[in-house]
């Protein structure tokens, strides 16, 4: 093969807004977020799963019983994100965490605006910080912030 030419490079973006129908369960969850109310769903084994899912993760049965849960809870695991990338909830370093809300049995993924990695530990309590101008989106729940420490 003849010599490799100087490599051509073109900056290129793929951008698209998907419009998705929510169905009744996710729709109720997002409607709740708009009103600062987080909802979960009761699974066949009695656990409350947040965010709610349409089908039982163990048995695959349809789930229907929506349950209001608190907007504060406990960090069940976390990881520090020192270099946020485009689209993430915060543009300064933050922690990703699974937060088990009061009244829930599973953790939901969210950002925790902890300021410093040293603030983070499993078992810490956090409280939701809500966005202004909520539209019925997961982004209505901006992030969690430190509430105090039970550990």
């Amino acid at each position: 093969m003849t010599a490799v030419p100087e490599v051509l490079v073109a900056e290129h973006a793929i951008e698209y807004t998907y419009t998705r129908s929510t169905g009744p369960i996710i729709g109720a969850f997002l409607t709740g977020l708009r009103d600062k109310q987080i909802k979960g769903i009761r699974a066949i084994d009695g656990r409350v799963i947040v965010p709610p899912v349409e089908y039982d993760p163990v048995t695959s049965d349809d789930l229907h019983e929506l349950v209001d849960v608190g907007d504060a809870g406990v960090v069940t695991t976390w990881s520090w994100n020192a270099t946020p990338v485009a689209g993430q909830p915060l543009d300064r370093p933050f922690a990703w965490a699974l937060v088990r809300l009061d009244g829930a049995d599973t953790g939901m993924l969210a950002a925790v605006d902890a300021g410093d990695e040293a603030q983070m530990h499993t078992g810490m309590r956090v409280r939701a910080r809500w966005a202004d101008g909520r539209v019925g989106s997961i982004r209505d729940l901006l992030c969690f912030e430190l509430e105090g420490d039970l550990a």
């Binding site: 965010p51 976390w78 699974l98």
Partner: peptide
Amino acid sequence: YAVAPLWPDARGLAGLQAQ
């Protein structure tokens, strides 16, 4: 609906598992 709109980075999710 509830996860991808937060754009979790793959390493961050792996970090949840490690912790």
